[in-house]
Design a protein around this nucleic acid. Structure first.
Lengths: 336, 336
DNA sequence: CTGAAAGCGCTAACAT
DNA sequence: ATGTTAGCGCTTTCAG
């Protein structure tokens, strides 16, 4: 049978109140002997407080929920690691789920988090549940939005400067003599990240004196079909001499396509990819990438959230923007 | 303010019991009108049952915990995806944490899970908390051990046949004309996985008529130092013409080392790696790998666990062994 | 310095 | 067909 606080109290010959107080560090006014006894009995009985009962009273669970949109990308694991580390340090546990980009699922998971009295949530939003997001804000439910921005929502936000990322990538390619740069994106969703990366792409073109006619954008809708789509596009646009890939999984498919076309990287086509994954430098040729501080994103997001949860007054909304970084390798090498 | 079942009951003009019954589907004996009214009020008030209170009564939380030992390996993400999918289907939520191979942390996390009344746990054990594991079994705490075996523990277990994996890899290399095969392992822990893979390696050597003198094993203790360690070993043992890498992250370092030594793969050194990661086929050259059904491991483990949680009688302990698969690519190509 | 008692939100006998 | 009541295990006034 489960041992409860009553069992401890009885065996120690004190009241539940006393046990509770001692276990929660409110023993300013307890006899050292009482404390000793209680702690000993707790040991003997291997008493573990029931967090459910505790939470029911205090309405705090010390659990935070995180809704991701994807379990397939290394990026998210680094983010998770950051969140986990912070949670561990601060005494929180993590409930994790994956909306898989589905707004229905996202809503369901958030509801479940709320029912479970999760203290707050970190979310990479599908950006398709505007009413829900607004409701959460109205209810002052502690929340941190990561990676994407929700248009018109004044919420805690931890993102990377994606315009900058796109700019860095394309500016670098142009500097290295590339003239006709194709940008490829994954999934046609209303998602700020790749739109901003494309914005950066365009900014770079403009700042190098290029015009609209130099804009080449290909939207990939499915990873499986990607190699074919890319191949087709490159055949139809033979002037392309570089590709800016806004997604690291997509880059692998791009390379596949180029291999099939017998195109050489970087001689024929230069590449800059997004996210400095563990394999980026081992690919042939080693990839130039835009590196995002994924671990720090997770770490900061969790800190921000826990801060908001703990603060008594209404906390100020914070907007943290991390800077991406260009990591130069062979795939974007200079051509004359 | 939070709306509770009492608020709903009052506004609907019925008792809490009635609301509870209707919300939980026990409305065999309720007037259709009552049901209507209650559901309407629930809508209006946006009532969400408090899972904490519910759990406190029923001593079931519909949460399962999972303790991983690592967030850095793609393998685990696939496992997680499998677990998640099953949980979603079965109405469970997931609490995830990362022991990082540290037995202290592992113990702490399991304790927290228990305090939170998590219904059961899936664990990739550090295999260093024997007493704890035994205690969990004695307490009949629903548990499924994945990926590794805990010596002497008769627990639910979902693993891949690692001996087979090692055998497949090395048998293949020998068939393709390799004579001196080095096996590299990561971390010197008491861990069944790589020990078994090494066992398979040895079995393959023996079945090809080779003796102890053909055994080459290198234990890497740190990923960072791996390239140097490997380089040194290969220089000291120039007869080596193939490497069986028991860990996919290690393979990347191996390739790094070979690159520095100007060794050609597969001409000079053949490679078989473990885990068919997304990048394996995009590496130069494309890697021959041992593929593990990681998603299915997660899926089965979760099913097994939920089964045990739900079964009334004492459930039989199950031991599921998945078979690995050899995926042949260029890195292990035949030599004369 | 310690205890009694109320109550967090919900469910489930046990009435009616 | 519905309501009353007694807890689940814990914290927290309020009293002593």
């Amino acid at each position: 049978m489960k041992v409860t606080i009553a069992d401890v109290a009885e065996k120690a010959g004190v009241s539940k109140t006393t046990v509770s107080r001692i276990l929660n560090g409110n023993h300013d006014h307890n006899t050292p002997e009482t404390i000793q006894t209680v702690l000993r009995v707790v040991e003997e009985l291997e008493y573990r407080p029931n967090a459910l009962a505790k939470g029911l009273k205090s309405m705090k669970t010390n659990v935070i929920g995180i809704v991701l949109s994807n379990f397939r990308n290394e990026f998210w694991f680094n983010v998770l690691e950051g969140v986990e580390d912070t949670c561990k340090d601060q005494g929180y546990n993590l409930m994790i789920c994956n909306s898989d980009g589905d707004p229905k699922l996202e809503e369901q998971y958030i509801r479940e988090f709320q029912m479970r009295q999760v203290d707050g949530i970190v979310i990479n939003p599908t950006v398709r549940n505007q009413r829900l997001y607004e409701k959460l804000m109205e209810d002052k439910y502690p929340m941190v939005v990561i990676n994407r921005k929700i248009p018109g929502l004044h919420a805690n936000n931890v993102v990377v400067d994606n315009i900058k990322g796109g700019y860095l990538a394309v500016d670098h390619l142009l500097d290295n003599g590339r003239k006709h740069i194709l940008a490829i994106t994954y999934k046609n969703e209303n998602i700020s990240t790749w739109q901003e990366r494309i914005k950066g792409y365009q900014d770079a073109l403009i700042s190098h004196g290029l015009t609209e006619s130099s804009i080449y954008i290909l939207e990939i809708t499915s990873l499986k079909k990607a190699p074919k789509q890319i191949k087709k596009y490159l055949e139809e646009n033979p002037m392309i001499d570089a590709v800016f890939s806004t997604n690291n999984m997509l880059t692998l498919e791009l390379i596949e396509a180029l291999k099939k076309m017998n195109k050489n990287v970087p001689a024929d086509i230069g590449i800059v990819s997004y996210d400095d994954t563990i394999w980026a430098k081992h690919i042939n040729p080693p990839l130039t990438t835009i590196k995002q501080p994924s671990y720090d994103i997770g770490k900061e997001a969790a800190k921000l959230l826990i801060n908001e949860i703990r603060s008594k007054e209404v906390p100020t909304i914070k907007n943290i923007i991390f800077q991406p970084e260009l990591v130069v390798r062979e795939s974007s090498e200079e051509i004359e």
